[in-house]
Structures are given as C-alpha cells and as structure tokens.
Design a protein around this nucleic acid. Sequence first.
DNA 1: CAAGTAGTTCAAAAAAACTTGAACAAACTC
DNA 2: GAGTTTGTTCAAGTTTTTTTGAACTACTTG
Lengths: 170, 170
Amino acid sequence: MDLPSPQPGTRTVGLTSLQRQVVDFFVDGVRVLGLPRSLGEIYGLLFISTAPLSLDDLVRDLGISKGSASQGLRTLRTLGAVREAQGNGDRRTYYEPAVDLKKLVGGFIREQVRPHLDSGKTKLQSISETASLTTDPVDKEFFTDRIERLESWMKRGSQVLPMLQRILGQ
Amino acid sequence: MDLPSPQPGTRTVGLTSLQRQVVDFFVDGVRVLGLPRSLGEIYGLLFISTAPLSLDDLVRDLGISKGSASQGLRTLRTLGAVREAQGNGDRRTYYEPAVDLKKLVGGFIREQVRPHLDSGKTKLQSISETASLTTDPVDKEFFTDRIERLESWMKRGSQVLPMLQRILGQ
DNA sequence: CAAGTAGTTCAAAAAAACTTGAACAAACTC
DNA sequence: GAGTTTGTTCAAGTTTTTTTGAACTACTTG
C-alpha cells in the first residue's frame, strides 16, 4: 500500500524531478536572502504544486520534521509568502503560495529589512551623542563628517525601499 | 608602557566607546547582508579611524586573530570596500575604507548578488527542459505558467540592480 | 644569508544557526 | 467525554559557518 520506502540518506525522495529542481532553486534563493533552507523547500514545493498542500503533505514530501514545517509555514505566513487556501471541506489547513513579486518583496522588506534600518537609525543617534563629547576639534570634525555620511546612507536606504517595491511590483 | 590589560571575556577592549558603537553598527549591518561579523568589525573600525590601519592594528584593537583579519581584509578588498592606503614610509600595508555608497553597493552586487542571479538563470533553463517533458496538458500549462513567472522575476531582478546602484550612488 | 617581520593558508575548534522530536494544547469526532 | 487528529513549542541534537592559531611563504634588513 505504501510508496516505495525512501532511500536512506536521501531527502525529498518523494518528489518528482521537476519538484526537486524547483525546490533547489528556491533553497538557493532564500539562502541569498539569509533565510533558512526549510523556507525555500516549503515555498518551492508550494510554488510548483497544482493544488494547495497541508503541513503533513510537506512533512511527507520534503522529508522534514513537523516542527520545521510548522515554523517554516509560520515565517512564510508572516512574510506574506503563503496563505491558507479557502474552501476544502477538511479539518486541516492547506496552503498556497503568494506569487505576486510585489507582495513577496514587500513582506521581506517589512519583516527583514525595515526593522534593521530602524534599529540602525536609533544606534546612529546614540553614536552621534557619543561623538559630540569629543574634545579635539579635528577629531570632532572628522567624526561628524563620518556620522553625517552614515545618516545619508540610512536615509537613502529608506527612500529606496518603496521605490524598489514599486519597480518590482508589476 | 602597555595599555591596561584587557578585561577577560571582553573583546574590543582597546576601543573607545565611539569606536565600539560604530563597530557594533557595522556588525549589525553586515549581518543583514549575510556577511561574517568580522567584516563588520574591520570595516567599522576603519570607517571611524582618522588614519589608515594595518592588519596588526586591527588584530590588536579588535581582539581578533591574524587569520580573521587577513581573510576579512581580503574579502573587503574583493568587495571594493577597503583599499590600501598610499604613501606611508613603512613596509606594512595600511588600509582605508571606501566610503562611497555607490561603490559599496556595486561591489556587493557584483560579488554577492549577480553570481546567484546568474546561477538561478541557468537552473531555470534546466527546470524548463524538465517541465517540457510533462505529458498531462493541464499540468504542463500550469508548470509553464509558473516557470514564466520565475523568468519574469529574474529579469526584473537583473533590471533593478543597475537602477539600485544608480539611485544609491550620489 | 640568518634572523626578523608581514601576511597567508587551512585543519581543527568554537560559535551560531537550523532542525528534530517528544510533550503539549486545542479542536474535533463518535 | 475518551480518543483522535492537527498543529505548536522548545530543549536538545545536528549541521553549517566562522574563527582561531600554528605552520608556512615571502619579503626585508643588517
């Protein structure tokens, strides 16, 4: 009744070769973004699935633990990269991928980039205060100059994000 | 003759509090970019130094190993984020930071982003070939649609990079 | 050219990040 | 309402990444 038992040492044995290739593609993709491998696996499989998948589907097909799947799905939901599929007469939850680049980029910016930009701005303020205590006028001018530069970097970063989202979104 | 000996368990003890704060700022910064902590430490210290620093300066002030400093400097050079300072009558090499945002972003794109985009495009081609073997016409149409979407994402990515660089550069 | 200095390399150690799985809570079913 | 099923949590285990440091190369200098 069961499918052929998995070859030991090999994960994602239940996948077709297309699925495996797409999963790999996204595993690489999320790695660039500094996100864990499992996110790429989950998103990738959803992306190339013709129907929504449940947590158990992911556990079985990807050969990952329930814990990984659960946490991965949560992160992907937070990022707006997956959503629950509607209307399948079933108790369990099925997921489908968000495939709108603008939305994906937006979620990434909101969750991963903005928080760092914001904390950077806070840090910069206290750096500025520390620098203001400098007594040597030559040093002080140099520090002020560098700090202004950092402030301009942060400002540009903030300006670029909405642009990025606009450019990438359709 | 020596400075007060370092407090055990604490690194970067040789730094002023301004230096420490700036180093922290960059440590956070490089982490977002998925680069190792030591790169942030090294770049941060160079950034807030009034004069170029040698490898030994970095080892002493940051409390990192010679190996880390050497490898970190190499990566930073590759990224175009530091360069050798000219004209100090001395055998050893002194480094100063590149402080032009355009150049920094350009180096990051060239070294860290482009290679992944390129390998992604290659992968996508072979995915496309695999999908073309699909017999079921409904599946085939779905796969084709998804792959086209990926292709459009990659294309947009490629288009955005130069724009980004332009927008951020001055 | 011997002794010293600057810097690199890379195997092994340490640290950080990710995944697992067992215990748990919540919701459903009969 | 006892027993399933679905999904979450988190401490412990595993894997991956980063750092260290000792051995080495290549200069330099007296």
